[in-house]
Design a protein around this nucleic acid. Sequence first.
DNA 1: TAGTTGTATTATATAACTTAATACAACTAA
DNA 2: TTAGTTGTATTAAGTTATATAATACAACTA
Lengths: 128, 128
Amino acid sequence: METIRIGDFSFQLDLTKPLYEQVLQQIRYSVARGEVALGTKLPSVRELAQNLKINPNTVMRAYQELDRDHLIETRRGQGTFITDNLKIVEQIRQNLAYEAARSFITAMKELGMDVHTAKSLIEEGDWT
Amino acid sequence: METIRIGDFSFQLDLTKPLYEQVLQQIRYSVARGEVALGTKLPSVRELAQNLKINPNTVMRAYQELDRDHLIETRRGQGTFITDNLKIVEQIRQNLAYEAARSFITAMKELGMDVHTAKSLIEEGDWT
DNA sequence: TAGTTGTATTATATAACTTAATACAACTAA
DNA sequence: TTAGTTGTATTAAGTTATATAATACAACTA
């Protein structure tokens, strides 16, 4: 799977999920991981579209969803920027982690396993 | 969300995911949870379709995927049955649990968190 | 033999996603 | 002021996955 680097961001697109979803996820996780500085300017809609060889509308859709979450700020005529609000970034990171945990626990319960078993699974697994 | 009961199985369908996927998942988890006895006869393709108010082809697709996993056995002219092989059921249950754990750990790592943090999240969360 | 099973095929419909082309509004820099 | 870059909106078209419908056949049971 090809990796495209552009600025502080890197992207890997495939056909298993909607493109706009992959783009927004990879930006979201880059920021949550702390790989890009707050206030960083994102590539323009057209530039990113060209680099990823996808349609500008698809990039727009990703940017707009991130904007709704206040993870990025779009300024008409200027560009799109990562929020400078650390609180927001931290909260989104916590939420993503919590949601991942919650869906894991839900799956375990659907298999008739309890939280203790879930914990053991995490402890005993080889997650290299 | 309406629950439809039929034999030892119960179904809840919505529009968030493909119908055939929901049907196969709910059968898979029912069996993995041990709610249905090994060798149990499933509703016929047409019967289940009628009860769920969906197309027989959609039920077929669910059954065929479960058949490929050997979780069920289809016998032309007789019907469809849960496997009588306990080993298979146990292995599928373990696999589902493992996959859930793996995808949780993957998400955590994508957020720059380690396995220890993952474990703490599980421990400290209120999963009622 | 009649009725039930799983199975296959062909056609149609629909919704989500993606692309394309175009236009406009807001801002920056020359 | 002007040219070029931004985000944004709109309309149309194409693709794909999913689901339905109708029909037929093969394998089995009673």
